[in-house]
Design a protein around this nucleic acid. Structure first.
Length: 785
RNA sequence: GGCCCCGUGGCGGAACAGGUAGACGCACACGACUUAAAAUCGUGAGCCCGUAAGGGCGUCCCGGUUCAAUUCCGGGCGGGGCCACCA
C-alpha cells in the first residue's frame, strides 16, 4: 500500500505537469512460495498464483492507483517467459551464459541452489536454514564481465540513494594487488594473491585453502589430513562458528622459496581461513601486518617481522600506512610506492603481475524447482549440451506434476524431459532446472514498453522511447539483488542488440517499512491487533511490545482490505503519506488513520458549505489578499516537496492551506472570489494524494471537466513577492522582539524599526550598540556591550 | 572488526543555503453543544519560576569557530544499517 501510493503520487503529479506517464503493474509470479503453498494446500501453483493475482489486482484498483492495466504482465505466462528463454540463448551465444561444475550454496529446506546474493550470514534468505556446500553442474550468467562498468557507472546514478550505491560498491568489492607465482620445494608452482605486495619482506609462511588442488596433491594420505579437512568443513557456515572459529592449519612438510631472499624458505600450510573462491586460494602470511596471519603465526610459532613503521605508536599487527623498513630495496618507501615497486619487479622477472580482483562472482541461475521458467537446453549423450532451437520456443512447463516427494517435480515427470537432440536427432533429455526468479524481474520494465508483443520481447524503438525508468520505488532489501541483476541484464541486453541503454533506472527511491505495535497475552502468545483490543475491552491482560516490521509470525498485521472498507482509499493513502518521511519506517496506528479520515470529512464539509452559500462564520477574518498568497505559495511548496519525495511536508502544506481557508469568512464578493480560488487550489494540490475526494469536490464546485485531466495550477509570481514579513530581532544573539516590515525593506528601515522596539531598548540599556546586522527578510541582530 | 547513517516536546516529525527551534499531525487538557457519552466545533500547550507582564533554560554530552549553531569543526556517549576469515 505504501509503495504503490508513493508511486501513484508521482504518476499523478507528473501527468498533471503534462508528462506522458507510463505507470504500469505486473506480477512477479514464479517462485517457491507458490510451490510451497501447493504442497501445503494441494492446489496447483498456477491456480494458486492466478487467484492471488486476481485478489491483489482488485485491492490495488480499489486504492485508486492510476495504473495502465492494459500493460499488465504476469511472469509465469509463456507469453512472458518465452522471451527470456530467447534472451538466455542469445547470452549463451555471446558467452555471457555458461555451465560449469562448482561448489554451490544448497538450501536443505527448499531443496535448491541459492545465489551468493541470496545467502545471508550463511543462511538461506527465505528459509533461514544453514546453507550446505554441494558440488553441482550449474548455469551461470557472466555478471563479472561487467564488474568494472557496474562499479564505475554507479557514479552516474546521482538520483540513487548513496546507501545503495555504497552497498553495490562493497558487493562488487574491487581490489588491486599482485598475483605471484612461487616455487614449492616439491617442484610445484603455487600462485598467490595479495593486496599488500609492500609487505613481502615480512612474509613468514604460506598457506592455501583446504580445497586447493595442491593441498590434495601434497597431503593426500598423510596421517591426520582427512581429520583436518573434516574439521574445516564442520566449522563451516554458522554465524557463531565463524565468530569463534579458531585458525587451524596442516603442515604440508614442503616450503616455498621467497622470491627476493634466497635463504628464506617459507613453510607451506593448508589453513582453514583461506577461501578457495577468492583470489587464487593461496597467500603468503605476514603476521606483523595482518590480523588473521598474526593469530595463525601465534599458534604455529612463525616469526613476526615488522616491515611497515607507523608514524605513531601502534601495536602489532599494524595494517595502516607508514614507512617501509627491513625490506631490502624498498626500504624507506611509502606503502603505495613500495606496492608499485614490488609489482614492477615481479613483472620484470616474469614471476607475477599486478591484477584487479573482484569479490563479485558470477550469478548462478539454476534452480532445482518446478515453478520457474524452464532453462531451454538439451543434454545429448553424443553432442553434449545443445541449445533448444529458437523455433521450438517456448519450452513450457508441464502442467501435470506431482508434489508428493521431495526434490524437483519437473525432474520426476515421467515424459517431459524426453526429447530429441536438435543437432544429431538422437534421443536426448531436457534440462530440468529452472531459472532463478530474479531472471524474470531483471527485464520486466522493458516489457512494459511493449507488453503484448508476441514476436519479440519488446520493440527496440518503443523501449528507446520509454526507457530508462525515470522513477523506481522499492525496498532497500534489493540493493545487491534485483537492482544489481537488472543493471547487469540491461548491459547484456544492450550487447545483444535489444536495448540502447545500459542503466535501467535513473531515479531510485527506497521507501521504509510499515511497522505496527506487537501484542502478547498473559502466556506470551502473539495477538492480532483486533484480538488485543477485544482482550483489553474484556479486562484481560495484554502486553504491548515495540512497533516492528509487520510479520505473520508476530501477528502485528493489518489487512489492507479492512482499512479500505472502513475508512476508504483516500484516508489510507493520506495517512500513509502524512507523518513519516517516506524513506523512514512508518508506524501504522488506528489513531493516525482516523486523523486522516477526519481531515477528509472536514474538506468535504468545507466545500459543501461553500457551495451551499454558507460562510462558516468564524473569528478569523483575514484579508483576501493574504489568503490568496497562502494559496499560491502552497502550489509551489507542494510541487517542490513532491519532487523531493517529501510527501509528509507536502501534506502538511495542504493542511495549512486548508486551515487558512477554513477559518476564512467570505462576506463580500472579493472575499468570496478569493475563497473559491483558494478552495480550488486546495483541491488541485490534494489530487495526487486523495484523488477520489478531490475529483468529487471538483465536480461539486460545478466543473464539467475531470480533475484528472487538469494541469497542475500555476502560481501567480507577483503574489508571492508582495506583502509583509515578520522577522525576529535579537540582541547579542537572543530573541528580544519581532517586527513586521514590507518584504525587501531596506536595511536602514529594518534597523530603525528594530531599535525602536521596547524589548530591544530594555536589553541594550546601559550598553553601547557596536553593530547591527540585518539579514533582509530574515533577522536583525543588535550587537551591544 | 571495516564502511555508512542517525540522536529535536509525551509521540511521528518541521526548520530553504548558519538567521524567530518545535510547521503539520497524533495523543492530551479545558470550554461549547448534549440528560450523558461519542462525534463535532472552539481554545491552550517545549520545560521551569510567575496570577500576569515577564524572565531563565532548552535540539544526546563536552569543547571550538561565528554577530548568530539543530545546522559547520574536534572529542565522547547512545541507536540503527550494510559488509565481514575477501589476503
Amino acid at each position: 500500500v505504501r509503495n504503490y501510493t508513493l508511486g501513484d503520487v508521482v504518476a499523478r503529479y507528473r501527468r498533471a505537469q503534462g508528462f506522458n506517464v507510463l505507470h504500469p503493474m505486473g506480477w512477479d509470479a514464479f517462485g517457491l512460495p507458490a510451490e510451497n503453498a501447493a504442497l501445503e494446500r494441494k492446489v496447483h501453483p498456477a491456480a494458486w498464483t492466478k487467484q492471488n493475482i486476481a485478489q491483489m489486482a482488485d485491492q490495488l484498483k480499489s486504492m485508486g492507483l492510476s495504473i495502465d492495466w492494459s500493460r499488465e504482465v504476469a511472469t509465469c505466462e509463456p507469453e512472458y517467459y518465452r522471451h527470456e528463454q530467447k534472451m538466455f540463448l542469445d547470452f549463451y551465444k555471446k558467452g555471457l551464459a555458461y555451465r560449469k561444475e562448482s561448489v554451490v550454496n544448497w538450501d536443505p529446506v527448499d531443496n535448491t541452489v541459492l545465489a551468493n546474493e541470496q545467502v545471508i550470514d550463511g543462511k538461506g534468505w527465505r528459509t533461514g536454514a544453514p546453507v550446505e556446500r554441494r558440488k553441482l553442474n550449474q548455469w551461470f550468467l557472466k555478471i563479472t564481465h561487467y564488474a568494472d562498468d557496474l562499479l564505475d557507472a554507479l557514479q552516474t546514478l546521482d538520483r540513487w540513494p548513496e546507501k545503495v550505491r555504497i552497498m553495490q560498491e562493497n558487493w562488487i568489492g574491487k581490489s588491486t594487488g599482485l598475483r605471484l607465482r612461487l616455487d614449492v620445494s616439491s617442484g610445484d608452482k603455487l600462485e598467490i594473491f595479495t593486496t599488500r605486495p609492500d609487505t613481502i619482506f615480512g612474509a613468514s609462511f604460506a598457506a592455501m585453502a583446504p580445497d586447493h588442488p595442491l593441498s590434495q596433491k601434497l597431503c593426500k594420505g598423510k596421517p591426520g589430513f582427512d581429520d583436518f579437512i573434516r574439521q574445516c568443513q564442520a566449522g563451516g557456515t554458522s554465524e557463531a562458528a565463524i565468530e569463534q572459529a579458531e585458525k587451524i592449519g596442516f603442515d604440508t612438510g614442503q616450503t616455498v622459496q621467497h622470491p627476493f631472499l634466497k635463504d628464506v624458505k617459507l613453510p607451506l600450510y593448508v589453513a582453514n581461513f583461506i577461501l578457495m573462491d577468492y583470489g587464487t586460494g593461496a597467500i603468503y602470511g605476514v603476521p606483523a601486518h595482518d590480523e588473521r596471519d598474526f593469530q595463525f603465526a601465534a599458534k604455529y610459532k612463525f616469526p613476526v617481522k615488522q616491515v611497515v613503521k607507523p608514524d605513531h605508536d601502534a601495536p602489532l599487527p599494524y595494517t595502516g600506512d607508514g614507512e617501509i623498513v627491513n625490506s631490502d630495496f624498498i626500504n624507506s618507501l611509502s606503502v603505495a610506492d613500495a606496492k608499485a615497486a614490488i609489482i614492477g619487479k615481479c613483472e620484470e622477472a616474469g614471476i607475477g603481475e599486478g591484477v584487479t580482483q573482484y569479490r563479485l562472482r558470477d550469478w548462478g541461475i539454476s534452480r532445482q524447482r518446478y515453478w520457474g521458467c524452464p532453462i531451454p537446453m538439451i543434454h545429448c549423450r553424443k553432442c553434449g549440451v545443445v541449445p533448444v532451437k529458437e523455433s521450438d520456443l517456448p519450452v513450457t512447463l508441464p502442467p501435470d506434476v506431482t508434489f508428493d516427494k521431495p526434490g524437483n517435480p519437473i525432474a520426476h515427470h515421467p515424459t517431459w524431459k524426453n526429447t530429441t537432440c536438435p543437432t544429431c536427432g538422437g534421443a536426448a533429455e531436457r534440462e530440468t532446472d529452472t531459472f532463478d526468479t530474479f531472471f524474470e524481474s531483471s527485464w520486466y520494465f522493458a516489457r512494459y514498453c511493449d507488453a503484448h508483443n508476441d514476436k519479440e520481447a519488446f520493440a527496440r524503438d518503443k523501449a528507446k522511447y520509454w526507457l530508462p525508468v525515470d522513477q523506481y520505488i522499492g525496498g532497500v532489501e534489493h540493493a545487491v539483488l534485483h537492482l544489481l541483476y537488472s543493471r547487469f541484464f540491461t548491459r547484456a541486453l544492450k550487447d545483444c542488440g535489444y536495448l540502447d541503454i545500459k542503466e535501467p533506472f535513473t531515479g531510485l527511491f527506497t521507501q521504509g517499512m510499515v511497522t505496527h505495535e506487537t501484542y502478547q497475552d498473559a502466556e506470551g502468545k502473539w495477538l492480532y491487533p483486533y484480538e488485543a483490543k477485544t482482550y483489553k475491552d474484556g479486562g484481560k491482560a495484554v502486553t504491548t511490545g515495540p512497533s516492528v516490521k509487520m510479520s505473520k509470525s508476530k501477528k502485528n498485521t493489518v489487512d489492507p482490505q479492512d482499512i479500505l472498507d472502513t475508512y476508504g482509499a483516500d484516508a489510507a493513502r493520506l495517512f500513509i503519506l502524512s507523518d513519516s518521511p517516506p524513506e523512514r519506517d512508518l508506524e501504522w496506528t488506528e489513531a493516525g488513520v482516523e486523523g486522516a479520515w477526519r481531515f477528509i470529512n472536514r474538506v468535504h464539509a468545507l466545500v459543501t458549505e461553500f457551495v451551499a452559500g454558507g460562510n462558516m462564520e468564524s473569528a478569523k477574518p483575514d484579508s483576501a489578499k493574504n489568503l490568496r498568497q497562502v494559496a499560491h505559495k502552497t502550489i509551489v511548496g507542494v510541487a517542490t516537496d513532491i519532487e523531493a519525495f517529501h510527501m509528509n511536508k507536502a501534506v502538511a502544506k495542504v493542511r495549512e492551506l486548508f486551515n487558512a481557508v477554513y477559518g476564512f469568512a467570505a462576506n463580500d464578493n472579493e472575499a468570496r472570489d478569493a475563497k473559491r480560488e483558494a478552495i480550488e487550489i486546495l483541491i488541485r494540490c490534494m489530487n495526487p494524494f486523495i484523488p477520489h475526494l478531490a475529483e468529487e469536490m471538483w465536480a461539486a464546485l460545478g466543473h464539467k471537466t475531470l480533475l484528472v485531466d487538469e494541469k497542475w495550477p500555476v502560481a501567480d509570481q507577483s503574489l508571492l513577492a508582495e506583502g509583509t514579513v515578520t522577522i525576529g530581532v535579537q540582541v547579542n544573539g537572543k530573541l528580544r522582539a519581532q517586527i513586521t516590515l514590507p518584504r525587501d525593506a531596506d536595511q536602514k528601515a529594518a534597523e530603525t524599526a528594530a531599535l525602536a522596539e521596547a524589548g530591544v531598548k530594555n536589553a541594550i540599556e546601559g550598553k553601547t550598540v557596536k553593530k547591527v546586522i540585518v539579514v533582509p527578510n530574515r533577522i536583525v541582530n543588535v550587537v551591544a556591550g
